[in-house]
Design a protein around this nucleic acid. Structure first.
Lengths: 151, 151
DNA sequence: TTAATTTAAGTTGTGCGCAATTAAGTTGCT
DNA sequence: AGCAACTTAATTGCGCACAACTTAAATTAA
């Protein structure tokens, strides 16, 4: 079961990773016109989602949620601050920490954003059960890849 | 079946797209140490794979295979050329076309690259049938998203 | 209580992705 | 032939991702 011709391993159309990579790019392109109305990129939208849920977070906690580090997040957060959506304060007990919170404009954007997931669901042309199953497989793979194994 | 609380749509851990995005990033990170030996990025590896399979291709055909355009590919191909892996010739019947082909060094790299898919399979800690099923779902979603629907 | 270590965030540099534009070559039409 | 329409690449500019490094603050250890 599941046997493959070893000679074919380097063929693009056999590789899961390439499908994953392509569909992730395609997803980003599909979001773009929807998020243009909010003047957000996909990652900015993701960060806003975290803040809508948790209200306040420092850079490290945020990085844990979105699987990214300060190298990516710091400039992104500066852009969100420049747009007037968030505040980047310093922790008073620990001066190293940046505490990110939403402005009123940032909070209000949530209402606009609530239409995005439905629009994407429609673009996917798949039903919720199929998407849930796909998500579950992705989450398992993500977990396996993140347990930096030696092999 | 498959009913969800509408209030939860904007929660990160409910969103397939975020899983897809995260696993695609994680995949890139997992490839990095393997491809470092070949001095290739993931996309460069993908392009080399296409050339190992088809020997010769112009930018447009290549873009069709990898779902990317000249804005991404032209600088990448220049870097592969600088590494001595490919040749970027002009079409003789049509001067607009760039014909990409492999140098001997580029052809020889295939032997080294053949170990990469197995190493990634091992990192995934999933079996081939699971990965095949996941790939199939991704391919369907990719197709749906690429049929730029209006909805 | 200094000194060493650790931690949080920021900085720098490279390489994508992609929209928008440009340049140059080809085709079609009359 | 002449010119508009189209096609192929290349270019420009922005925003990620990420490795490697730096800075500054906090913690620990001696």
């Amino acid at each position: 079961m599941g046997k493959k011709d070893p000679d074919s391993y380097l063929f693009l159309d056999k590789q899961l990773c390439f499908s994953l990579y392509s569909v992730s790019n395609a997803m980003g392109r599909a979001y773009r016109p929807l998020l243009k109305k909010l003047d957000l990129t996909y990652l900015q939208y993701i960060v806003m989602m975290v803040l809508w849920q948790y209200s306040t977070m420092n850079v490290k906690e945020l990085g844990g949620k979105v699987h990214l580090d300060s190298g990516t997040l710091t400039p992104l957060l500066k852009r969100l601050e420049a747009k007037g959506l968030i505040i980047r304060a310093r922790g008073q007990q620990d001066e190293r920490v940046r505490i990110i919170s939403l402005t009123d404009a940032g909070k209000n954007m949530r209402l606009q954003a609530e239409q995005v997931p439905q629009a994407m669901l429609s673009k996917s042309k798949m039903n919720v059960d199929e998407l849930t199953a796909l998500k579950k497989s992705c989450d398992i793979l993500l977990l396996n890849l993140n347990n930096h194994n030696s092999a």
